[in-house]
């Protein structure tokens, strides 16, 4: 595994000059793609999303590796096709080098409209790493709620108003849905921790079969944070246990990071304009409900790790 310094000296697959927003952390991921995947030819695919539109405005492209986008809801299926053609041509001896395939989508294109296509690709067992950068809403079209939008967040389709505190109900847990596909590797990572992310990316790539990484990636305009804040807000999202860093290898859970002290989720929410309305006293119950959900989820994952140890015979 290369160190961060070594990684930084390798050529990136993602050129500067793209049109991602100032302060968007997604290029941390895209620059990393070919820096931890030595020994493989890498082909990337994109769902329609911020990354896709900002990296490929014809006649320009930020991609120095082969890259394909077809539509919003089908990165799983499109890349299934690319990966299968690779196997077909390899079988015939027309390709000899080892290839790996990476699909990238936002939470809208992954949790929502692309869920079926993703599910099919994972279930069929394609040698494909799917990375969802979860920024908790349809940011490309201007911050509309998705099923990844957390409780109480204000979006343009769940605005806070006299009769609403914002998004009703809790977000979907896509990582667990992916675990239920019985694939070899599922992980949650955060854009603030490139060491953890690069290790997970390498594990996912090295695996012969489908893998899924859910990546917390704050959105500057969508979360209403400053352009210098994305990494810090992601870090606090992990510290407050909103976004546990864990991986599930062949069904066994492993928590990768346990925050030293319990940061109240309210501190994380207070950094973000999308939650600021909830800081008013009348919304204390919403914040409490949010904290309860975060605690419940953390507890569930820790228990899964314990159960995995028992099942593996390491603990009675």
């Amino acid at each position: 595994m290369p160190s961060l310094q070594e990684m930084a000296t390798k050529e990136s697959a993602f050129a500067g000059g793209h049109r991602m927003c100032a302060g968007c952390p997604v290029p941390i991921l895209t620059k990393m793609l070919t820096r931890v995947t030595d020994g493989y030819e890498i082909v990337a695919g994109n769902a329609t999303c911020c990354l896709e539109v900002a990296s490929s405005i014809f006649p320009y492209s930020a991609w120095k590796i082969p890259w394909i986008h077809t539509a919003f809801e089908n990165a799983g299926a499109s890349m299934s096709g690319v990966e299968t053609m690779y196997r077909a041509l390899k079988k015939k001896g027309k390709i000899t080098k080892p290839y790996k395939f990476i699909a990238i989508g936002g939470d809208g294109g992954t949790y929502d409209i692309g869920l079926q296509s993703l599910s099919g690709a994972m279930e069929r067992g394609h040698d494909l790493v799917y990375i969802c950068y979860d920024n908790g809403a349809y940011m490309n079209t201007g911050v509309q709620r998705s099923s990844a939008t957390p409780l109480g967040a204000t979006t343009t389709t769940t605005p806070a108003g006299e009769r609403s505190f914002g998004r009703q109900g809790n977000r979907k847990d896509l990582s667990r849905i992916m675990v239920a596909h019985n694939i070899g590797y599922v992980a949650q990572a955060s854009i603030h921790d490139p060491v953890d992310l690069s290790e997970k990316l390498k594990k996912a790539i090295d695996l012969d079969g489908p893998a899924f990484i859910n990546l917390l990636s704050p959105c500057v305009p969508g979360w209403k944070i400053g352009p210098d804040m994305a990494v810090e807000v992601a870090r606090l999202g992990v510290e407050c246990r909103y976004w546990p860093l864990y991986e599930v290898i062949d069904g066994a859970y492993k928590v990768n990071y346990e925050p030293k002290k319990k940061v109240p989720v309210k501190e994380w929410m207070a950094l973000q304009g999308r939650f600021r309305h909830l800081l008013k006293p009348e919304y204390a119950e919403v914040v409490d409900a949010f904290q309860k959900e975060v605690d419940r989820n953390w507890h569930w994952i820790v228990k899964q790790e314990e159960l995995s140890e028992v099942l593996a015979g390491r603990v009675n």
Binding site: N46, E52, V53, S56, I57, F58, P59, S61, W63, K64, I65, P66, W67, I68, H69, T70
Partner: peptide, 8 residues
């Protein structure tokens, strides 16, 4: 490397 499906 080719870019397929760019924004037009």
């Amino acid at each position: 490397p080719a870019t397929w499906g760019a924004l037009d």
